[in-house]
C-alpha cells in the first residue's frame, strides 16, 4: 500500500505525477525531451538505458514499463531479456553496449563512472552529447525508481497492464495526456 493516499486507478508513477502536478511538470518535460526529443540515440536505445537502470535498482514497476516500451519500439522482446542478463551479449551496437555500461555505473553512484568506461564509449563512436544524455537518463531513472518505490506505489502483476502502458508511452510519450487519466477509471472496475 502506498505511504500516502494516491488515485487507485493510477498505479506506479502515474498516480504520483497526478498527486503532485506542479512537481510533475518539469519531470515530464525533462523525460519527454531526453527520451523522445531529437537525438542521435533512437527512442528504443534510450528506453534500453531506462530499463537497465530500473532493473538494477530492482524497481519492478519502472522495469516492466520501460521494458514494454522498448519491446514495442524494437518489435521484439529478446534485446531487453538478454541485456538484463548480460550487457555484453545484448544484440545492440558496440557503442550502445558501452553506453549501457556507463548507465550501469551511474546507477551505483555518479562517482562509480570510470574514465575507462567513458574513453571506451568514445572509442566506439559515442559523442559527448550521447555520453551526457546517457548519464542524465540514468540519473533520471534513479529519481523515478526511488520516487516509485520510496512512496511504496502499487506495481500491478498483470503483464497486460505493462503492455498497454508501454504502448501508451510509444504513442503519446511522457507529457500528461491532454484530457488526464479519468478514462482509465472504468478499465479498473471489476468486470
Amino acid at each position: 500500500m502506498p505511504h500516502i493516499p494516491l488515485p487507485e486507478h493510477l498505479p506506479g508513477i502515474t498516480g504520483l505525477l497526478e498527486y503532485s502536478r506542479l512537481t510533475a511538470e518539469p519531470i515530464r518535460q525533462l523525460t519527454q525531451f531526453i527520451l523522445r526529443g531529437e537525438n542521435s540515440l533512437t527512442p528504443a536505445e534510450r528506453e534500453l538505458i531506462a530499463t537497465i537502470v530500473s532493473h538494477n535498482n530492482e524497481c519492478r514497476f519502472c522495469t516492466a514499463a520501460h521494458t514494454a516500451a522498448a519491446d514495442a519500439l524494437l518489435g521484439e522482446t529478446e534485446t531487453c531479456e538478454i541485456m538484463k542478463r548480460d550487457i555484453d551479449a545484448a544484440p545492440v551496437s558496440d557503442k550502445m553496449r558501452a553506453l549501457l555500461k556507463i548507465a550501469k555505473q551511474v546507477q551505483v553512484s555518479g562517482k562509480a563512472v570510470t574514465q575507462e568506461a567513458v574513453a571506451f564509449a568514445k572509442e566506439q563512436g559515442a559523442t559527448d552529447v550521447e555520453i551526457h544524455d546517457t548519464v542524465l537518463i540514468a540519473g533520471l531513472f534513479c529519481l523515478y525508481n526511488r520516487y516509485v518505490d520510496g512512496m511504496a506505489t502499487v506495481a500491478p502483476t498483470d503483464p497486460q497492464f505493462y503492455k498497454g502502458l508501454g504502448q501508451r508511452l510509444v504513442d503519446y510519450g511522457y507529457n500528461r495526456l491532454p484530457n488526464g487519466y479519468d478514462h482509465l477509471k472504468r478499465q479498473n472496475q471489476p468486470t
Binding site: 505511504h3 500516502i4 493516499p5 504520483l16 498527486y19 503532485s20 512537481t23 556507463i102 555505473q105 551511474v106 553512484s109 555518479g110 562517482k111 563512472v113 574514465q115 567513458v118 555520453i131 551526457h132 548519464v135 542524465l136 540514468a138 540519473g139 533520471l140 534513479c142 529519481l143 523515478y144 526511488r146 520516487y147 520510496g150 512512496m151
Partner: peptide, 26 residues
C-alpha cells in the same frame, strides 16, 4: 503529513539524480 512525506521523498530522489549527473560527468 502526506505532503511532507511526499516532498521529502521526491527531493531525496531528485538529488539522487542531480548528484549522479554532476559526478557521473566528472
Amino acid at each position: 503529513g502526506d505532503k511532507d512525506i511526499h516532498d521529502t521523498i521526491l527531493i531525496a530522489a531528485a538529488f539522487s539524480m542531480f548528484n549522479r549527473y554532476v559526478d557521473g560527468l566528472g
